[in-house]
Nucleic acid binder design. Sequence first.
DNA 1: ATGAAAGCGCTAACAT
DNA 2: ATGTTAGCGCTTTCAT
Lengths: 353, 353
Amino acid sequence: MTQDGIARTPDASPRTLPHAATLHDVAREAGVSLATASRVLNGSERKVAEAFRERVERAAEALGYTPNVSAQATARGRSPVIALLVADIADPYFGQIAAGVARGADERGLVVTIAITERDPERENRIVRALRGQRPMGLILAASRAEHPDGAEAGSELEAFERFGGRVVAFGERHGDDGAERSVVIDNAGGAEELGRRMAALGYRTAIGIAAAAGVRTSDDRLDGFTRGFASGGGRVERIVRADFRRESGAAAMAGALAEGVEPGTLVFGMSDVVALGAISAIRAAGREVGSDIAVCGFDDVPASSDVTPSLTTVRIPLNDAGYQAFRAIVDEDWQQDPLPVEVVVRDSTPGR
Amino acid sequence: MTQDGIARTPDASPRTLPHAATLHDVAREAGVSLATASRVLNGSERKVAEAFRERVERAAEALGYTPNVSAQATARGRSPVIALLVADIADPYFGQIAAGVARGADERGLVVTIAITERDPERENRIVRALRGQRPMGLILAASRAEHPDGAEAGSELEAFERFGGRVVAFGERHGDDGAERSVVIDNAGGAEELGRRMAALGYRTAIGIAAAAGVRTSDDRLDGFTRGFASGGGRVERIVRADFRRESGAAAMAGALAEGVEPGTLVFGMSDVVALGAISAIRAAGREVGSDIAVCGFDDVPASSDVTPSLTTVRIPLNDAGYQAFRAIVDEDWQQDPLPVEVVVRDSTPGR
DNA sequence: ATGAAAGCGCTAACAT
DNA sequence: ATGTTAGCGCTTTCAT
C-alpha cells in the first residue's frame, strides 16, 4: 500500500480519489460479463440463472455498487427526471404542489429537479432552455405565467422541448394551439364564482379585488369568476388593485387602497391566500379591523389561513393532489385528470352582515 | 421530405422521433471537428480561432443545440447537481431553506434535486444511497435526524458518498468523528436560551415543552437551551410532551397536555413554530385562551407566525441564508460559515404577567 | 490552434 | 441463457 492508502496501479496513473464501484467492477468480481451484471442489476426482463444472479448481487453488495444515473441516461437516451418549475419554492402554494410531485416521483423512482422562475418570464425561458439539457421525461410548469407576453416567441423553448419527446404539463389551460401540452386544471373560475355568490349571500355588496397583472391566467380566472358570482348576488367589484402573488405585494396594494379610502363593510378579495394575508396585515397596520369593518377572503386555503385570526375565508384546492396529477400527466401515457374538487370554506374573516 | 417530415436516412432506420441536436450535428454543420465544437461550446480554456468560434456558435444557435447534461456528466465523471434532502418540502421551514439552496445553485448554474425523507431514518438511508447514483457534487441534509439511531450502521451510506469525493453538508453539527462532513450550524441552544431568559423575565415560571423524540438534535438543543435560560430566570420546565415537527402532531401533544390539566399562566414552548401553531389551535379547541391564559412561544419565525393572532413569540433564524450557506459549503473549497444571527422576537402570544 | 481517437459507465442489439 | 460489441453524447489526451 502506498502512503496515500491507494494501491499503486502498474501504469502508475496517480488517481487522487477512489472511485465508486462500476458495473465493470461488479462483473469482474462476480466473474460474469458486463451484460449479465447489467441484466440482473438493472435490466427489466429477467433471464439470468439464479446462480449468476446471486453472485452478481453479492458482488454488488460487497462493492457498494450504485448505478451511475448519468451513464444510464446517456446510454438509454432519456433521463429519469422530472423538472419542476415554480415561481418560489418558499411559497406554501408551490410547496404543496412540489410535495405532490415529489410523492409521485418517489413512487416511480424518479428524481425531481426544481428551478425557480421568480415570476420572471424571461428567466423562465432561460430555465426551460437549460432544462432541456437534462433531457428530462417531463417538465411541470407550476409558475403562474401570463398569456403570450410578447407574441409568438414565448414558449418556443417549450415547443422545442416537446418536439424532442419531452412532455410538458402546465397548471391551468394553456392559451395556444398546441395539442401536445397537457394541463392539470384547477377550477379557479368556478371556485371563485361560488365564493362570490356566498359572499353576496352573506350580505356584502361592494368588493375590492387584489389581483395580479392582467394576463396572468390564474388571477384573471379567479377575478372574473368572483366578479360574476358576486354580481349574481347583487354585489359589485368596485375596485381592482394590482399586486403580484407575494405577501408583501398584497400588503402594499392594500395599503394603497386604504390610503384612497375604504368604506366599512367592504369585502377584500385577495387572489391568493398569501396576498390576502398580506392585506390583513396592512388593514391592521392602518388601524382598521379585519372582519366586521373590512372583510377579507382569499383563495387556495394554505395552512396559515386557518391559523390567522380572524381565520381566513377562502377556497380550498387540493394542491398536493394537483401536484400528483401533474406527475401522472407526465408518466402515464393515457392520463386523464382526476377531478380536483374546489370548495369554499367560510371562516371568520367574512362575518355575515 | 418524407411524409413524417423527417429526412430518410440511407440506412432507413425508422427513427420515431426527431432528436435534439447533438454536438456532432453542430460540428458537422459548422464544418469543424467535434473537439473544436466542444471547446467553444463548453470547454473552459479558450483557444479557438475567432472565425471557427463564430461558425460554431452560429451552428449551435441555428440547430437549437443544448448540451446533454447526462453525457457531459458521464464524460466528466461528475454531475453538476446538488441533492437536497428535506423532511417535507411543504413545511415552510424546509421551503425557505430550499429557496436559499436554489438561489445559490442558480448562481453557479447547478441543478438542485430534492428528495423527501418524511422523517424516516430508514427512508433517508435508502435515499442517500439512490442519490449516490446521481454522483452529485454534494448532498445537503436538511432533514432533522436523530443521533445514530442504531449504532454504527447509520450514516455508512454517507461515508460511502464522501469517500468518493462527494461533499455532504448537514444542518446542525454531526455526532460522529468524521471530519469530512461540513455543517452549517444554527445556534439553536443559544437562541432558545435567550428565549427562556426573556420568558422568565416576562414573569413566566412554569413551562411545558413540546419536543421531538429525545435524540433529535435540533429539538434537544432547543429544549436544553430553553430550559437553561428559563431556569436562570427562576422558571422551570415542568413537563415535556413528545411530538414530531408536524403541526397536527403539535396539536395532538397539546391536546394531551390539556387533558391532563394546564394551569393558567403556563407557558408552552413548541420546538418549532409549526408545532407551536398546532398547539395554539389545540388550546383554542379546548376552549382556552392563548396569551393571558396559556402563553405560547415557538422557534424559527416562519411567515405564518406573524399572521396568527395573537402573533407568535419566537426565535428568528435566517433560514434562506442558512440554505445559501449550505450551498456554499458544497461549492467553495475554502468555505467558512458566515454567522447566522438568531434573534428572539417577542410578540403577543406571551404577554407580560 | 485543430483534429483523431480513446475513453466515461452503461445499455442493447447481435451473436453464440 | 450468456457474452461480444457497438454505440449513447461528450470530454480530453495526444498527435499534428
